[in-house]
């Protein structure tokens, strides 16, 4: 065994692998349930991007905050949410994380520091400066990490937030999941610069681009940013390059990319990659992998069952929660 895993004990690595497999299984199941008409609305799947979500959250403590995106199921699971309550939310049930009021795009789990997915591109980006300021003013030992996509990096609010976090040295990590497309708009068509992390220099903060399909590389880059934030060194902009295997949402005919391109990225599957690395390093066996897979499948079966048997919201409560 070489020292590539020196900073992560085998049990922790298995946790990360398990989380990635759980995200994948959860989203595949959700998609199937949607196709069967059990779930309505839409959903934005992050299949193929699990390495970024899990690598980033692995560098955070349970007390640290995240703000997530419309493609946020992975962030949610990686931060510690329960898949049964997530699935119940997909089903619109009272036992879901948002009591069936939010759905896929708004799942939050405040108990694990997840302040919520967001239906607005860059919606969480201005807010994270406030969360960071709140941490700083309350002298808390916390960090706030905001996930956003390559599309969000072109919203005006991105600029305002990074600038404010920079001038106030807020304990914030800006984590851009560059999955190559803002719906159909390729990042190469949407930005003149090669690396989105280069934008960090405009705010006088560090920026780093990392392979988002390498969860360990993501973990290490995020850990460095988190340590900087925690010790008063201010924000960092991380760009994790990854790829969504599925369409933007359920209406996407994917006319803007080729099957060959998708296939090339699928060969860089972050889950297969970490499993292979662990097997080669003799800290995981094929048998362990099969056991993990069986465990994940059972967790999803249980989650679906929980969601199915859970009660619908009582229509008499429809007005609840508008005001505190």
């Amino acid at each position: 065994m070489d020292d590539q895993f020196a900073d992560l004990p085998p049990a922790r690595l298995q946790d990360l692998l398990h989380q990635m497999m759980l995200i994948r299984a959860f989203e595949e199941a959700a998609e199937q349930l949607y196709l069967q008409g059990m779930i309505h609305g839409t959903m934005h799947l992050s299949i193929g991007q699990e390495g970024a979500a899990v690598g980033a959250c692995a560098a955070l403590r349970p007390t640290d905050y995240i703000l997530s995106t419309h493609r946020g199921h992975g962030h949610c699971i990686a931060k510690g949410a329960r898949v049964d309550q997530m699935m119940a939310e997909f089903f619109g049930k009272e036992t879901g994380y948002c009591r069936g009021r939010g759905g896929s795009m708004h799942i939050a789990d405040v108990s694990t520091g997840n302040l919520g997915a967001n239906g607005i591109v860059a919606g969480g980006v201005p807010m994270v400066a406030g969360v960071g300021l709140s941490i700083q003013m309350q002298r808390q030992d916390r960090v706030a990490l905001v996930f956003f996509g390559d599309g969000a990096a072109n919203e005006g609010a991105f600029h305002e937030s990074l600038n404010m976090a920079a001038i106030w040295s807020l304990p914030v990590v800006y984590f851009c999941e560059n999955n190559q497309y803002a719906m159909s708009m390729a990042i190469a068509r949407a930005s003149k610069i090669e690396r989105l992390s280069d934008r960090a220099c405009a705010y006088g903060i560090p920026g780093v681009t990392v392979d988002g399909n390498d969860p360990l590389a993501v973990y290490r880059a995020t850990r460095e940013a988190v340590e900087r934030a925690r010790s008063g060194g201010g924000p960092t902009l991380i760009e994790a390059r990854t790829y969504r295997w599925k369409g933007h949402s359920k209406s996407d005919k994917q006319r803007y990319r080729t099957k060959e391109e998708v296939k090339q990225w699928q060969e860089r599957d972050p889950i297969a990659r970490l499993a292979q690395q662990m097997i080669e390093a003799s800290i995981l066996t094929e048998g362990d992998l099969a056991t993990l897979q069986a465990r994940v499948e059972q967790e999803i079966i249980d989650a679906i069952e929980f969601a199915k048997v859970s009660p619908e919201p009582d229509p008499a409560t429809i007005l609840e929660g508008v005001y505190a």
Partner: peptide, 17 residues
């Protein structure tokens, strides 16, 4: 930065300020 100000207020309010 009016969007930023509203974001700062919202994020801070959400987390105890």
């Amino acid at each position: 930065s009016e969007a930023g100000i509203a974001g700062v207020a919202t994020g801070a309010a959400l987390t105890g300020m």
